[in-house]
Amino acid sequence: MDDAVHLRSTVCLLGRFPALAGLDLVVARGETLLVRGANGAGKTTLLRALAGLVPVVEGRAEVLGCDLRRDRRRVRPRVGLLGHGPALYDELSVADNLRFWARAGRARPADLGAAMARFGLDGRLRDVLVARLSAGQRRRAALAVLVARTPELWLLDEPHAGLDAAGRDVLDELVREVTAAGATVVLASHELERAAGLATRSVTLAGGRIVDDGSRWPDALAGPRRQEPVHVA
């Protein structure tokens, strides 16, 4: 199978609550999928499930060829998740944080240096403690960690949040670059105009299911790289 993501009737529980309630979704490799939905629709749970962090209790779920129901830990080193939190240690400097996470992910030192430079972290911010960074600077550092790890599947939860205009441009350029190189991106966002410009396809979640597979994509939100309208199993 050449799909990066293949979910069929997938159910994930948060406690007893079905955060994903029989969700069907296929994402081809190299695609950029925008996941829309109101608060509590299941966007974050979907991303965490794709990362192998939330157990799938029913249905079929394969990510990058790994069966999430059988062994969800296998897929983890191959995905990069940008969540709501920066996943950085406040009491370490930017460089120490990046060095730790890059080594943990077996990234090459050259990739680490390039990632820092890309997000403007190789100058005066390099030795600043993360606790002293602004929210946007933390976001940049978190993105730099992902870049250094070079994942095959990028899972971005509100990636533009907190970034300034320059940071947003760098992020958009990065997404286009990694998908052109063959990686897959799934991003959840409320900033639809910005995110739609990146996405090749969009789905809308509500109540843990896909309620709009993108066939009714509003013209105002249609991005320049929009391709196939629907790809739902």
Partner: peptide, 12 residues
């Protein structure tokens, strides 16, 4: 810290 436990699990 926010997200560090998840990041450790994802780190490999």
């Amino acid at each position: 810290g926010e997200g560090t436990a998840d990041a450790l699990r994802l780190s490999g």
